[in-house]
Nucleic acid binder design. Sequence first.
DNA 1: TTAATTCCTATAAATTCGATAGAAATTATA
DNA 2: TATAATTTCTATCGAATTTATAGGAATTAA
Lengths: 156, 156
Amino acid sequence: MISKKTKYAINALVYLARENKGTDPIQISKIAESENIPRKFLEAILLDLRNAGILSSRKGKTGGYYLHKSPAEINVADIMRLFDGPIALLPCVTYMYYERCDECKDEATCGIRSVFMDVRNETVNMLKTATLAEIMLRSGKLEREKKPGKEKKKKK
Amino acid sequence: MISKKTKYAINALVYLARENKGTDPIQISKIAESENIPRKFLEAILLDLRNAGILSSRKGKTGGYYLHKSPAEINVADIMRLFDGPIALLPCVTYMYYERCDECKDEATCGIRSVFMDVRNETVNMLKTATLAEIMLRSGKLEREKKPGKEKKKKK
DNA sequence: TTAATTCCTATAAATTCGATAGAAATTATA
DNA sequence: TATAATTTCTATCGAATTTATAGGAATTAA
């Protein structure tokens, strides 16, 4: 399971991607209220995102947060790594934070490692594809499926 | 990351699958020593595996543990679920232990949920395929690749 | 009866998670 | 220049989880 921090972060980012039509930054309290995130907790999260170069901020009155990159450049894999650490399920199959399993006999021939290596690769691929842009696209699609509107369906 | 419990469990199971040529059960201490697992900790793990119907045991002198199912019927997904709970990364995309995200507005149109649903499906598929038999097969393959023996290579 | 084992219950230290409190620094604007 | 609204920083805290360990009861072969 991902942590609440990561979940809150993704929700906040999607909100910012959606709402940021104008150029004005959006305040913490507005995001917190809209996304049902504890105010003070969100504060720390946004700060981390800013220090990671994903968000920018303006201080003082009329201050707030806004995306530092385009929604297509921000992906879930990076957010998860920032708050929860490696995506891999075993320390011996991470790229960045590799650590040997102390109980392991021979890593090179470990069948367990081989399995979890495949899982990591597949998962990272999927989560890298999951950008804010992609997430918004999916919501849109789901909404259109939900209420079959008056527009002609192109599919099928 | 999976817990040490799960990692130890998988290692112990693979060991049992490999070693259990004869019919005699294998003792906790032997597994613990061979796989570098704290004795008392392993005790609890094996008990859980037994209660889950994956291992059987014999008590008293000459007692020990052995597989209750064939290596092809024991998969990593089940082991992970037993010790670490759901494989899904969000509570709203598990099959067995579904729980609504309290901060969520509309689950049916949630783009985040859609992404994590895909990830869960793919991961579960891979981990179900990862049986003890499959893990042993992979080790064998890796060993053959490591020391290119005298046998003719069939591949390429 | 003894020795060797699994089984059971209780506990404990260390770490992580989710969150809050309070005040300092910054900035627009009246 | 003063004020109000905001981000930023530091510190702390309780609860849950993880990773074990201790000690003895129950079981069984010899």
